[in-house]
Design a protein around this nucleic acid. Structure first.
Lengths: 197, 197
DNA sequence: CGGCTTCCTGAACGGCTGTTTAGGATCGGG
DNA sequence: CCCGATCCTAAACAGCCGTTCAGGAAGCCG
């Protein structure tokens, strides 16, 4: 079982879902993206549903790791938070490249409603994500950068807001693009972290 | 074209999607819920995709109208806002009954990515929803209940946060149930509306 | 070299499901 | 009563697509 080929398939699946949509993605589409036969896809994954679920988690993990790396290089808690927000905003979508992980979120949520394994994997990643925020905020409080708020509450509020804003930006809501999304999330953070307790 | 039968089908479609998921919902499932033949469903709707899209908008509109009614009966802006938040939290899901509109949101978002008409309908409803919030907040500011914040920004932040929290609650995230969701949204609103500008 | 494993494919299978069609029932109005 | 419109169904159609299977190429190891 070549591990790189396996990753190829996961990448291709993410691309296919992003471009064609969850329901319209066929195994043949995935195979075509990397130029192999449909049978090979089922050689690496037991079933289509399992592949789809794995691909979503795969893309999420890539995103999580990429952002985690960037966070380490930021000096202050505030810098880290700004990077985290900026990275959460959707960039321009490029045909054939790995999509923003946003593009797969509705599909992930929809599938997770009936796939307990996927739901649990998603929850685990989400918790890791939020705990990053908690750490940043608590460090910021300790350093005197932020006021003493409940970091856990804030992390839940911020991630929820980012999710919601990203959906609107993704769907082309004329009042919410990536810039506005970033602005709103930053304004929220400022208000929560800088104001009087 | 009996209008009530049409509504029956839309209701049944919403139920089917909520229970079986977007991709797994077949026309036969929808027909079975109301005890008619699959052919009849296609007598009222030109195609399956059109039916699915209509059903999502249908449920959204029901939700919007139901909440709008309840809002009218609340005296103060703060009361209205609390009702709006409370109604946004998912209730216990009942087999066979109309689902919370949350249950269809991931499906709606997923479909809207490739269905411009659905995307536009969704945006329109979302704007109506947010403009309700803007009105409430501006009334509250005028009445001296709230501090003078940007109502439009707040409406975007609050709806996004509610969307995001609802997703986590819906997926059974152990740290976010309906009660916690309500608490977090209320805490956010209090902080934004009651603090110093 | 010979055989085993790994990676891969073409082709067939099998079932499912959206959609169409032809026609039956029911009912209201002329 | 008769006719048309409305509402509805059974059955067939048509094509698709996930999955399986039998086997081939390519490399590796003894």
């Amino acid at each position: 079982m070549s591990d790189s080929r396996r990753r190829d398939i996961l990448d291709a699946t993410a691309i296919a879902i992003a471009e064609r949509g969850l329901c319209e993605t066929r195994i043949a589409d995935i195979a075509e993206i990397i130029g192999v036969s449909p049978a090979l896809v089922l050689y690496y994954f037991p079933t289509k549903a399992a592949l789809l679920a794995d691909a979503m988690i795969h893309l999420d993990r890539l995103f999580y790791e990429s952002v985690s790396d960037k966070l380490e290089q930021a000096p202050t808690a505030e810098d880290k938070l700004m990077i985290l927000i900026e990275e959460s905003c959707p960039g321009p979508s490029v045909e054939g490249a790995l999509p923003d992980s946003w593009a797969l979120w509705p599909a992930t949520w929809e599938m997770a409603r009936h796939d307990p394994a996927l739901a649990e994997a998603r929850t685990r990643l989400d918790e890791a994500w939020r705990s990053q925020i908690v750490t940043i905020v608590e460090d910021g409080i300790a350093a005197g950068e932020f006021s003493q708020i409940d970091a856990k509450d804030f992390s839940l509020q911020l991630t929820a807001m980012l999710d919601g804003l990203a959906m609107e930006a993704m769907l082309g809501d004329p009042t919410v693009d990536a810039a506005r999304m970033s602005e709103l999330a930053r304004a929220f953070s400022r208000r929560m972290l800088k104001g009087p307790v």
